[in-house]
């Protein structure tokens, strides 16, 4: 278990992001300059709107499970995240 204040490292689209334990994946990604979380059905890039699990705009793939709401998942060491930003690269 990580303690408050401790840093954890997640891997977002192959890039390491270090954030304080307890940070949500959504906050970690936005803080890391990720703006395209998912691609909408019409092809637009989307990022978090509600920040609290309602809007489903922050859906990303976490440890291989697609459609996880990044705002509800706390960052943990080694957590692997794939976002729609890959399609932009």
């Amino acid at each position: 278990m990580s303690r408050p204040g401790e840093l954890v490292t997640i891997v977002a689209d192959g890039r390491e992001l270090r954030v304080p334990a307890g940070t949500s994946v959504a906050a970690a990604l936005l803080g890391g300059g990720v703006w395209a979380f998912r691609q909408s059905v019409g092809g637009e890039m989307r990022a978090p709107l509600c920040g609290m699990g309602i809007c489903f705009e922050c859906r990303v793939t976490i440890d291989g499970v697609p459609h996880r709401r990044a705002c509800l998942v706390p960052a943990k060491d080694g957590l692997e995240v794939h976002t729609a930003s890959r399609e932009l690269a």
Binding site: A27, L30, P48, C50, G51, M52
Partner: peptide, 18 residues
């Protein structure tokens, strides 16, 4: 991207976004 809620901003702030 960049348009967020008001409570949404607070939630993201409290979730660790600077």
């Amino acid at each position: 991207p960049g348009v967020i809620g008001v409570g949404g901003a607070q939630a993201l702030l409290k979730s660790g976004l600077s």
